[in-house]
Design a protein around this nucleic acid. Structure first.
Length: 420
RNA sequence: GGCCCCGUAGCUCAACGGCAGAGCAGUUGACUCUUAAUCAAUUGGUUAGAGGUUCAAAUCCUCUCGGGGUCACCA
């Protein structure tokens, strides 16, 4: 480079983290390093603060040795730009995230499902048991809820004549955060006419196998020391079987909440009894027992099927069985990944379910499903039989990219505001 | 929200009742150089914040703020 340009560099007017444009001849230095013999140099952008320093050296054996690091979790999340600028493996996670979502979208399209968008701001929330965020429209002077699921809006579209629809988008739930919960998270839901929950299980298996194939080139993927095998078919166990095997309780022996509660209380380890919440409905008790006794053991992909009716207001009954519905959840690496059922499409049964929920839960209970009259009206026009499905995309991305926390697959995870 | 752990320089960490330190970054000077770091010198702190105990507090106690974990909650 010429004398004037060299002086700029020497005087450190141009330094690490600046953006520059160089014109010149590609060359190799005496030490063998590829370099540029610079004729012209232009400063494109000046860095005023240095980034946290990380330098990498490729060793003779090909391993990369790192010097210095930027690892403070809070700083990394609050200043994701610096995290990305400095930690290449973090950048890679979000490239894989885009690839996974693209794969899911292609898979859904190839299944003949139509991608749609439905309201995020809803006058009546529903489709899940969660506390919503409430906001307000000033000019219309009405309260609105941020959606907790897409379910009821999507199923209305089947009434409209589409044979299958799906949506990938954000849900908002006003509840605690954890390594697998963020207040806003990305969900996939689909509804397909003329299949039941067995058909949905088939689609689920094939979809996740396709995602694993796209990310890893095979249907197995490592996660936290295990190798998760997504190859279909996955084991299918009923809730009743799973609980009978893991907790040695057959809840059908306890047909009412009082007796079942006593049985669970006896089963619980002494130190957990103090925390045990009394007075829950029958189905809720079963669900808790499933969570306590079974969930963490389900490392390989597993369908758990046939849930209690009283906590599943939108699922169709199992034929000839008044207490169970055609519903499944699937578990991977000890995490609940998704929830699906043969959708209830009988408007009279649906109205009865809303009434049952109102009896079972107080209106402000998270589990209460507020009656959605417009949804009932849609169903009265005739809704085709269909199978529906919901899955937390962020959790799937955790599995596929080997991340332990949902915060590591979200560019901007929710953090508490710092003062001022 | 309960309980447990953590918060020291821009970054990564040490000091764990007795003078707040190191490496890197930064700054200054030298070098048409180097392959994480050329050499030399040097700046940098309300130890997250407030209060308390003590002759003396980064260190012990209380509260607040923030983070992590766990439980509750989360079909």
């Amino acid at each position: 480079m010429d004398e004037a340009t060299y002086q700029l560099v020497r005087e450190k007017l141009i330094e690490v983290d600046d953006f520059v444009q160089a014109t010149g001849t590609l060359m190799r230095t005496k030490a063998g390093e590829i370099s540029v013999h610079v004729r012209e140099l232009a400063l494109l952008s000046k860095a005023l603060s240095p980034l946290p320093v990380i330098k990498q050296q490729v060793q003779d054996d090909g391993t990369i040795r790192e010097f210095g690091e930027f690892s403070d979790t809070e700083s990394r999340y609050r200043q994701r730009y610096a995290d990305l600028a400095v930690n290449h493996d973090v950048r890679d996670v979000f490239i894989q995230r885009a690839q996974i979502i693209r794969t899911i979208r292609q898979f859904m399209d190839s299944e003949g499902l139509l991608e749609v968008e439905t309201p995020i701001l809803q006058p009546v929330y529903g489709g899940a048991a969660a506390r919503p965020f409430i906001t307000h429209h000033n000019q219309l002077d009405e309260d609105l809820f941020l959606r907790i699921s897409f379910e009821l809006y999507l199923k209305r579209l089947l009434v409209g004549g589409y044979d299958g629809v799906y949506e990938i988008g954000r849900d908002f739930r006003n509840e605690g955060v954890s390594f697998k919960h963020n207040t806003e998270f990305t969900m996939l839901e689909f509804y397909k006419a003329y299949i039941d929950y067995n058909g949905v299980m088939d689609i689920t298996e094939r979809m996740l196998a396709a995602v694993a194939m796209a990310v890893h080139g095979r249907t197995q993927a490592p996660y936290q020391g295990s190798v998760i095998d997504y190859t279909p078919p996955w084991p299918r166990r009923t809730v009743r079987e799973a609980i009978r095997e893991e907790a040695e309780i057959d809840y059908m022996d306890y047909p009412d909440a009082t007796s079942l509660e006593a049985a669970i209380f006896d089963w619980l380890p002494a130190e957990e009894r103090r925390e045990f919440q009394r007075g829950q409905p029958w189905g809720k008790l079963i669900e808790h027992l499933l969570g306590a006794a079974v969930e963490k053991k389900l490392i390989q992909p597993t369908f758990i099927t046939d849930y209690p009716r009283d906590i599943s207001p939108f699922a169709k009954r199992v034929a000839g069985d008044d207490v169970h519905v055609e519903r499944f959840e699937f578990y991977i690496a000890g995490m609940e990944m998704g929830n699906a059922f043969t959708e209830l499409n009988d408007p009279r049964d649906q109205a009865a379910r809303f009434e049952e929920m109102a009896r079972l839960f107080r209106a402000d209970d998270d589990d209460a499903a507020p009656t959605d009259d417009d949804y009932l009206r849609a169903m009265r026009y005739g809704m085709p039989p269909n199978g529906g499905f919901g899955m937390g995309i962020d959790r799937l991305i955790m599995l596929m990219t080997g991340q332990r926390s949902i915060r590591d697959v979200l560019l901007y995870p929710h953090l508490k505001q710092t003062g001022r």
